[in-house]
Nucleic acid binder design. Sequence first.
DNA 1: GGTTGAAGTGCGATAAAATGCACTTTGTGG
DNA 2: CCACAAAGTGCATTTTATCGCACTTCAACC
Lengths: 61, 61
Amino acid sequence: MAIRKRRTLLGITQRDLSEVAGVSLRSLKALEAGDANPSLGQMIKVFDALGWKMALEERGK
Amino acid sequence: MAIRKRRTLLGITQRDLSEVAGVSLRSLKALEAGDANPSLGQMIKVFDALGWKMALEERGK
DNA sequence: GGTTGAAGTGCGATAAAATGCACTTTGTGG
DNA sequence: CCACAAAGTGCATTTTATCGCACTTCAACC
């Protein structure tokens, strides 16, 4: 997933990110592993911690 | 929210959208009302039904 | 005023997410 | 090989989202 790539690029551990984002380490691991259907709030926290924001786009065709 | 605007623009009811998207009417109402912390799957279904997709952007500054 | 369709809302039941904990695996440096 | 840090994973528990249902509100129309 993109999360891991971004996180490693920032040179921080899962623990670091989970603390900055304010989600549990367990949840972050699940999120990175892709075996999760996270809540919007959960995602926003993590994305925000990674310097990302969510946006809507037209789905081409 | 943007969902309602889009939906009314399409000229469909909440019931219509909920059925097309595959989520319960109750959930869609909550989603439009903004009193929800929906799951990613839930949002994708609705956004997809509205011709939208989600994207990540750099958070300015 | 009565009827109808769409939308808003509260509540209880259930499915699922989020968490904590214990443990395993993997890599890295001594 | 050993020690340590980071990551992966299974499980039990707690919390929360999702859903159905009943009821209310509101507007349009006859």
